[in-house]
Design a protein around this nucleic acid. Sequence first.
DNA 1: CGAACGATTAGCT
DNA 2: GCTAATCGTTCGA
Length: 191
Amino acid sequence: MSAADFDLPSDQVAHLLIGAMLLVDGVGGRIVETEAYDREDPASHSFSGPTARNQVMFGPPGRAYVYRSYGIHWCLNFVCREEGHGAGVLIRALEPLRRLELMRERRGVDDERLLCSGPGRVGQALGITSELNGARLDRSPFQVFASTERLPVMNGPRIGISKAKEVHWRFGLENSKYLSRKFEKFTSQPG
DNA sequence: CGAACGATTAGCT
DNA sequence: GCTAATCGTTCGA
């Protein structure tokens, strides 16, 4: 995918990314769960304007925004919309497909379903660190290929937030074993 | 400068 | 289901 593909509202990109192949240095798999965030969104890091941490969200679309979560985990986002807007998509889960042994080693677990099912796990399995904050998604080490298939996508409330819980900007591949959690309430998107 | 709070996970009950 | 771990970011004094 090119930078222009991310110059769209983050909920559209979050939906579009379900089924896409994501690789970092050849390690990764198929995206099965995402969440959208936007400048006008109280749950978003960008809601209160640019800061040292979130400055990449206010840069050009098609870049990686990487942040430290709970002092422990690295979480990977894709910057969306026009430059300066402050929108992004959090990559919450992958179906692991490439270089599973390296992911098992990095994660310290064998179970395939625990390799990339959660944003912190995705970061650890793919070797994401702050060094990749601001990196272009159309250049090494990233590779992002949109799905050519029409896939059944469901959506629902985002996870782990305290504000804007009524916004259903969590998207997931229906029937995937690799979601970080079940979708309790969801509406199926028209295929 | 201090304090509160996470876009989480793992491990235990 | 509940909670400790763990520390950078943010905001108010």
